[in-house]
């Protein structure tokens, strides 16, 4: 249970996260999540749930959420949202807000990128690919030499090198 009297609650958090009141029009219709490819991820990206957290002002819970980073920027949600909430923009805004509010935050997709060479969880897709006769996914980890060079390149960035404990091992 989330006790609004105990939890860190910022009533006007939506203003901090998102630049417009479009988010307040959300009525949880489910259009966005019905078309979202990242709703297939594990855990699924449920943008309307994130909108609800923003509106309730649940700071801690929203900071802990990794799902905004699963968005593949297809913008379908933006197209189907009847309320003009602009869910895609909201997802990006949440990412920015998370990083602004937690300097130590390493997006899980960055770790994926370092370790696997791609950001999205693909385990489900692998089965589907096999089922329809497609070949193996041509990812960078198939070539250890290339992956090593790629990781070296990433390690040269501040965000990775300052937090290298998260990427090694």
């Amino acid at each position: 249970m989330i006790d609004l009297e105990q939890a860190e609650v910022i009533p006007d958090m939506w203003r901090e996260v998102f630049e417009s009141e479009d988010i307040r029009f959300c009525f949880n219709c489910g259009s966005c999540i019905s078309v979202c490819p990242a709703s297939n991820a594990d855990p699924p990206l449920l943008i309307r749930r994130l909108a609800r957290m923003v509106l309730l002002g649940l700071e801690d819970e929203l900071l802990d959420e990794d799902t905004p980073w699963s968005c593949v920027s297809c913008s379908k949600c933006e197209e189907v949202c009847p309320m003009g909430v602009r869910p895609f923009e909201l997802g990006l805004a949440i990412r920015r807000w998370q990083v602004r509010n937690d300097e130590t935050r390493i997006p899980p997709s960055l770790v994926e990128l370092y370790k696997e060479g791609y950001t999205q969880p693909v385990s489900r897709a692998l089965e589907t690919r096999a089922a329809v006769g497609l070949g193996e996914l041509p990812t960078i980890d198939k070539d250890p030499e290339l992956l090593k060079a790629y990781q070296k390149m990433l390690m040269a960035t501040d965000v990775v090198s300052n937090n290298d404990y998260m990427f090694k091992g």
Partner: peptide, 10 residues
């Protein structure tokens, strides 16, 4: 149901 959690308040 959207949050998938109970909410308590005063």
């Amino acid at each position: 149901p959207i949050l998938g959690d109970d909410i308590g308040l005063r």
